[in-house]
Every structure is written in C-alpha cells, then in structure tokens.
C-alpha cells in the first residue's frame, strides 16, 4: 500500500521487518511469562498477552502498544517525507510540547475546544514552515535549523504555559487521546494514526507528490532537470511534519489531560527517526516507505512496553533505540552496501 502495488512483492517490502520485530517481541514476552518461575503464565493477571476489560474497553500491554504507539506513528508518518528529501526534523518533540501547550492554554482561557485544536495544529504547521523555508530557501543544514526549534521550541512552550503543567477538563480534547469510540473498541490514538496513514498514503501515492519527493531525495539534479519544484516540495515536507507533530502533541496532551512543556514529546525525535529508519527509509534520502514507518513506530512502542514490563525505566529506553538506529544505518551505509553488492550478481 505504501509502495505502489506490484512494484515489490510483499516479502520485499521493508515494512516486513518491523512487523516481524513486533511479532517476535510479543512472542518473546509471552515466552518469558510462561517460563519464568512464579510468572503469570500466558494469560494470567499481569501477563503480556492478557486482555482485560476496564470501564468497558479492552486494556492490557497489547492495547498499550496500540495506544501509545499511535502518537509515535503519526510523528513517523510526518518524518518520512522529510527524511526522503535527505533532511531530518529534530524539532518534533518540541513542536509536540508547543502544540499541547497552546491547545491547553486556549481551552483554559475558555476558547472553544475546536478552535483550540485548530490553532494548535496551525502552530505546528507554522513551525514546520519556518523549518522548511530556512532549509530549502535559506540553505541552512536541516539538523541545525531543527535543532534550534528543538531547544527553543520547548522554551516557547514553557513561556506559553508559564513554566507549569496546565491541566484542563474538556471532553473534545480528552477524546483525542483517551476516547474509545463505541463502534470501534480501539484506542483513539491508534485510530487517528491509522487514519493519518490512510490519508498520507492517499496524498502521496494517489498524486505524484510521493514520486516527486522521492525523486528529489534520490537524485536532486535529475529532478531539477525534469522540472520538479524541489524547494517547494522540501518546504512542504517540513510543514507536513510540523502538522503531524502537532497532532501527536495533542494526543500526548490528551493522554494526561494536561500540557507538560517539560516532558511532552521527550525523546520523540529519536522515536520518530527510529521508526522511519527501521521502516526502510534511508537517511540518505530517496525511496520512502510510509507503511514501514508506521509499523516501525509500533515496534518502538512494543520495545518500550517490553522494557516497562521487565521493570526497565523509561529513561534508559533510548539506549537500545539509539544503538538500533546506528545498527540499521551501518547496515545500509555505502561501504557495507558496496560489500554486499559485490556478492550479489547483477542482471545484465
């Protein structure tokens, strides 16, 4: 779906790897539960596979993965086109915090919640526009531009909330994160992420935007020589990424019914890059795989949930993630690719 049908058979799609990763992580956890002396067994209370009903909705580790992975998946969907154009957006975590802060502050100030949501999304898009214009028209390296917003954006979020956690009670805002529609007993973040996946795939693959984005990242000179508007496209990728980050920020905010400018979106940039890279999009640009990034996000959340289940703190979680990103990058690096390519025989 993320890659045009017929272009690659299913087992060649990079999305397979994160899916296999999720499956093996879940199995590993089940095995742990079963074999550990004094463990809960396969479906006992506290077991990884156990699904219980809480307040009429399913709960458990598997539901947690879908729930908390949703925001990461949305981030990853936004990050994918940026990375495909040879860029990167380090500011997604801060944009999350900023969007949450804006929405919460507005709601607390009695602005209608729908207007607050819209404003927060617009702020995210504006952040992306700043990044995109500075990168594509200003010619400043993407990681420098977005590093500024990564650090300063969090500062702005603190200014917005007055350096405190702004809590609120608003049905619509809470629904974004905590909602469980009656007709679909799944966590709202997962539903939103799936909808975003569908929308993104439609927008990029049912138009030529995806092809052009990949062309710009794959061979900028060739793209320019067929008349692709590279700069506009690059700027648009950052705007979309900012928009996605804002949506993810709203979900994170809704999950805790409050905007925390200090901790919202912490390590989110790492999570998003992890998902994209594991999902088969190269940091060198070019081909992108939206479905892979989507699956990669849930692999990351599965990893985090596993670590929680094994009582490893959230603060330590980035260590294996960072190492995994490095490993994937090394496997895909030019020297290693050349080494592997020498073995593979080319068709004439």
């Amino acid at each position: 779906m993320a890659t045009p049908a017929g272009q690659r058979s299913w087992h060649a799609s990079p999305a397979v790897w994160p899916v296999l990763g999720i499956v093996s992580l879940v199995l590993l956890n089940a095995l742990f539960d079963k074999l550990l002396p004094g463990g809960p067994g396969l479906f006992g209370p506290g077991a990884f596979l156990r699904l219980s009903m809480r307040d009429g909705v399913p709960a458990g580790a598997l539901v947690d993965i879908l729930n908390y992975g949703g925001a990461i998946a949305i981030l990853a969907l936004g990050m994918t086109p940026v990375i495909a154009t040879r860029g990167v957006d380090l500011s997604v975590g801060s944009v999350m915090a900023l969007a949450g802060a804006v929405a919460a502050s507005l709601v607390v100030a009695d602005v209608p919640s729908i207007a607050a949501l819209a404003t927060a999304l617009a702020v995210g898009a504006a952040c992306g526009l700043c990044n995109g214009v500075l990168v594509s028209f200003g010619g400043v390296q993407p990681f420098v531009v977005t590093l500024v917003l990564m650090v300063a954006g969090r500062g702005v979020a603190q200014l917005v909330t007055g350096s405190q956690i702004t809590t609120f009670h608003d049905p619509l805002l809470e629904f974004v994160g905590l909602g469980r529609p009656a007709w679909l007993p799944l966590p709202m973040p997962f539903i939103l992420a799936t909808a975003m996946l569908g929308a993104t795939v439609l927008a990029l693959r049912r138009t030529a935007l995806g092809l052009f984005t990949e062309a710009v990242g794959s061979n900028p000179e060739a793209a320019a020589l067929v008349g692709v508007r590279s700069r506009l496209l690059v700027a648009a990728a950052y705007v979309f990424c900012g928009l996605c980050a804002a949506l993810a920020g709203l979900i994170a905010m809704a999950n805790i019914k409050g905007a925390d400018p200090f901790n919202a979106g912490r390590n989110a940039e790492l999570a998003a890059i992890f998902a994209v890279v594991v999902g088969g999009t190269s940091l060198a640009g070019g081909r992108m795989c939206l479905l892979g990034a989507f699956a990669g996000a849930f692999l990351l959340q599965a990893l985090t949930t596993t670590m929680y289940a094994r009582n490893i703190g959230a603060d330590v979680a980035p260590l294996p993630q960072a190492l995994a990103i490095l490993a994937v990058c090394i496997v895909g690096s030019p020297p290693v690719a050349a080494m592997l390519g020498r073995r593979r025989k080319r068709t004439p």
Partner: peptide, 16 residues
C-alpha cells in the same frame, strides 16, 4: 568508517 552523517551518529550518542 561507514560514511555516516555526523549528525545522526552524534544524535544517537546524545540519546544513548
């Protein structure tokens, strides 16, 4: 050795 972008290696280093 792997011709990786410096920002990605040091970003990983930052989180690790």
């Amino acid at each position: 050795a792997f011709a990786l972008p410096a920002f990605i290696v040091t970003l990983a280093g930052m989180f690790a």
